[in-house]
């Protein structure tokens, strides 16, 4: 039986978490919806993909969103470290394109601890650092009756068990609903490992 999602989500504060997979932006949106106060979203300036604030409104008020465009990953990490350590912004999201070294991940972790803030790194698959508190693999799932279903797989957890949940986002209520996995018995997949 997988652990209850509420034990892992909302994410633990004063820690840095990681999300990967094609559904990672949606995961970040859901994380933004859990807190209040400004959100700093650090991206590298050369990326063409951008957050659409109009759609972000389904998760949280776009006025809360601040975007920092860093020149490269090194700068992005530096900005994230400053913001995490400062404490003025409760949630910092960093989009990364290259592997995150253990040293960089640990620095972010220490900064989050000193600032009492939460960090979330959106990483390409398999490029996380061992310092992360949790790592989530998020994929959108097709469902005949629902177009917001996602599968969140907790693939690394420093302080607890792993698990898989199917969730859907209720944009009207800005609420996360856990739904049984499509075509499977609840909990048949998420054996703790």
């Amino acid at each position: 039986m997988p652990a209850d999602l509420s034990a892992h989500f909302p994410l633990r504060k004063s820690r840095v978490h990681e999300a990967c997979g094609p559904g990672a932006p949606g995961f970040a949106g859901a994380v933004c919806a859990q807190g209040s106060g400004p959100v700093l979203w650090v991206v590298e300036a050369w990326r063409h993909e951008q957050v659409n604030p109009v759609a972000f409104g389904a998760f949280a008020d776009p006025a809360r969103l601040l975007v920092a465009r860093a020149g490269d990953q090194r700068e992005a990490l530096a900005v994230a470290e400053v913001a995490l350590g400062d404490g003025a912004v409760p949630l910092v999201i960093v989009e990364l394109g290259a592997p995150l070294s253990l040293k960089a991940g640990r620095r972010l972790q220490l900064a989050a601890k000193s600032g009492g803030t939460t960090g979330l790194c959106l990483i390409p698959e398999g490029m996380g650092s061992n310092a992360a508190e949790t790592r989530w693999h998020c994929t959108p799932v097709f469902d005949a009756s629902d177009s917001t279903r996602m599968r969140w797989e907790l693939i690394k957890n420093k302080s607890g068990t792993l698990g898989v949940w199917d969730v859907r986002w209720d944009a009207a209520a800005r609420r996360l609903d856990v739904v049984p996995p499509a075509g499977k018995r609840p909990g048949s997949q998420g054996a703790p490992g």
Binding site: G37, P38, L40, A45, P53, P62, A63, L65, L66, V67, A68, R69, A70, G71, E75, A78, V79, V82, A83, D86, G87, A88, V89
Partner: peptide, 27 residues
Amino acid sequence: PGQDGLDDLVTRIGNRIGLENVLRFLP
């Protein structure tokens, strides 16, 4: 509350990556 702290943070980030690179969205 906390607006001052946010301004200071924007200043610190802005001095690293340029103040014009810290953005917000307006409708």
